[in-house]
Simulated scan of single mutants.
Amino acid sequence: MAQSNASAEAIEPTERKMRAKGVSVYYGDKKAIDNVDIDVYQEFVTAFIGPSGCGKSTFLRALNRMNDTIPSARVTGTIELDGDDIYASGMDVVQLRARVGMVFQKPNPFPKSIYDNIAYGPKIHGLAEGKAELDAIVEKSLRRAGLWEEVKDRLQDSGTALSGGQQQRLCIARAIAVDPEVILMDEPCSALDPIATAKIEELIDDLRGNYAIVIVTHSMQQAARVSQRTAFFHLGNLVEYGHTSDIFTNPTQQRTQDYITGRYG
C-alpha cells in the first residue's frame, strides 16, 4: 500500500538522483530560466508548478537535453545524473534519454501496434535477447502502467486506437520499457478527463521509488496529491523549493503565497 504524502515527506531522502546547479536556459538572447539550483531525489515525486510561461517545462526539458532539438536553445550551469554532467561533451544523448525518459503533455503513441510501441525502445537499445524476452518486457511494462488487463487480448491493435487516458498510460509503459532511472512528465494529464487523470495519478504513486519522477503540472491540487517535493517557478526563476506540504500551507516567499491563494497565475 502506498504511503501517504505526509509520511513520505517525513522520510529524509538518501539518494540524490539529479542535481542542477546554476542552470540558465536561453532561447537566442532571451533568458527563459535564470540560475536555478534544484535536487531531484530517487524516493520522491517532485512537482514543478507556476503560471504559464514561467519556465517550468523549459527546465524539465533541460533535464534530458530535449532543448538540444531547438537550434536557438543554450544551457549554462551544470546538471548531473548520478554525479555525471549530462552536458559534458562525451555524454551519449541517446543513452541519456533512455535513462531519463519523457512523457509529454499530449499522448503521442507511435502509429504502430500496442506491442510494437512498447517493444521499439528495448529493440533499439538491445535490451532483449529474443522474442520471449521481448514479450516479457512488453507485459511487465504494460502491467506497471496499469494497462495489461485492458489490452492483453489486442496487442496487435494500433496504439492510436486507444482512448486518451489509455494512450497516455501506453506512453508511460513505453518510457518504462527501456528501464529508465528518471521519468519526466510534462503535464501528463492536461488532455485527459477526471477519471483518466485519477488513473495516471494512481500510477505515479505506484511508480514512486522505482524511478525518480518529476512532473510539471498546472494543477496545484494534483501537485499536492502526487508529490513529496514541490518547486514553484515564476518568470524564469525558481522562487521556492521544499516539502510539498510546506509549499502549500506555509510558504516562505510572498510570491508563492500569492500564487497558491490565486492572486495571480
Rank of each mutant, 00 (worst) to 15 (best):
A191Q: 06
D193K: 00
P194W: 05
P194Y: 07
P194T: 06
T197L: 01
K199P: 02
K199M: 04
K199G: 00
I200E: 00
I200C: 02
E201I: 08
L203T: 01
I204R: 01
D205W: 02
D206W: 01
D206K: 01
L207Y: 06
R208H: 03
G209A: 12
N210G: 15
I213T: 08
I213N: 02
I213A: 12
I215T: 15
V216I: 07
V216K: 12
T217I: 06
S219G: 10
M220W: 03
M220A: 12
Q221P: 09
A223H: 15
A223I: 15
A224V: 10
V226D: 13
V226N: 04
S227E: 07
S227Y: 03
S227C: 15
R229E: 13
F232Y: 11
F232I: 08
F232T: 06
F233R: 02
F233E: 08
H234T: 00
H234Y: 13
G236D: 12
N237C: 07
L238A: 02
E240F: 04
G242V: 05
G242F: 03
H243I: 08
H243N: 12
D246H: 10
D246V: 13
F248L: 14
T249D: 12
T249Q: 15
N250L: 06
T252S: 13
T252D: 14
Q253V: 08
Q254Y: 04
R255K: 12
Q257K: 13
Q257D: 03
Q257N: 07
D258I: 01
I260F: 03
T261E: 09
T261N: 03
